[in-house]
Design a protein around this nucleic acid. Structure first.
Length: 196
DNA sequence: TAGAGGATTGAT
DNA sequence: TCAATCCTCTAC
């Protein structure tokens, strides 16, 4: 079943990041469907320095994060990689969850072709890689996850607390003490997570 | 309008 | 460890 707006519009972004583990991210373009289980996420909030919208910094880029929860926030990183985020909370509360890795389910052949590598364990094991595999880019910024191009479903499987690993987030050392927040979540021993 | 730097990746 | 690569934000 497709996740509803109310799932995304809750005020606790770190809880949503945790809840997204085990959910299924799906994209469909030109009738080609690709999907995977979300196995790694990170939470970001206007309240902390790791976030683009820190201190309510409102720019052309961060505007999407100030919209309603349930939208897609995609931005370009290092001039090369598209990063896929899920906007959470209500309008004007800029929070988002970065999806860092998925475990491929459907359309694996297409994902391998897009990724130009043959190792299926490596095609979606990182935020820049999974967007390439799913065919997601910045043109999708601001679209709704309740639409028909990209969406998230709940497969009904329960993730045990003991399978969830919590750590600090990656690549935001510039955020000072906020870089230490325990806001990265991933499934223990999953072969597709971005780092061991 | 110029300059610095980044929520990464893959090759060396 | 380092370059690729270009958009975003800040300072002038």
């Amino acid at each position: 079943m497709k996740l509803k707006k109310s799932f995304y519009q809750r005020p606790c972004v770190d809880q949503i990041a945790k809840d997204l583990l085990g959910k299924v991210l799906i994209s469909r373009f030109n009738n080609s469907l690709t999907s995977g289980i979300i196995v790694e996420t990170e939470a970001y909030s206007f309240k902390e320095k790791g976030c683009h919208a820190y201190n309510n910094l409102r720019t052309a880029r961060t505007e999407t994060m100030f919209g309603d929860g349930g939208k897609i926030y995609v931005y370009l990183c290092y001039g090369i990689h598209n990063m896929f985020n899920i906007v959470t909370n209500k309008k004007e509360k800029a929070e988002a969850v970065l999806v860092r890795a998925i475990e491929p389910i459907e359309g694996t052949d297409l994902m391998i072709a897009r990724a130009s590598t043959r190792n299926s364990h490596r095609i979606t094991s990182g935020p820049g890689k999974l967007t390439k595999a799913l065919g997601i880019d910045r043109t999708m910024d601001g679209q709704l996850l309740t639409g028909y191009d990209v969406w998230i479903e709940d497969p009904g499987t329960k993730i045990a607390f003991s399978r969830i690993v919590v750590t600090k987030r990656i690549g935001i050392d510039y955020a000072g003490e906020d870089a230490l927040l325990p806001w990265r979540f991933y499934l223990k021993d999953n072969p597709w997570i971005s780092r061991p």
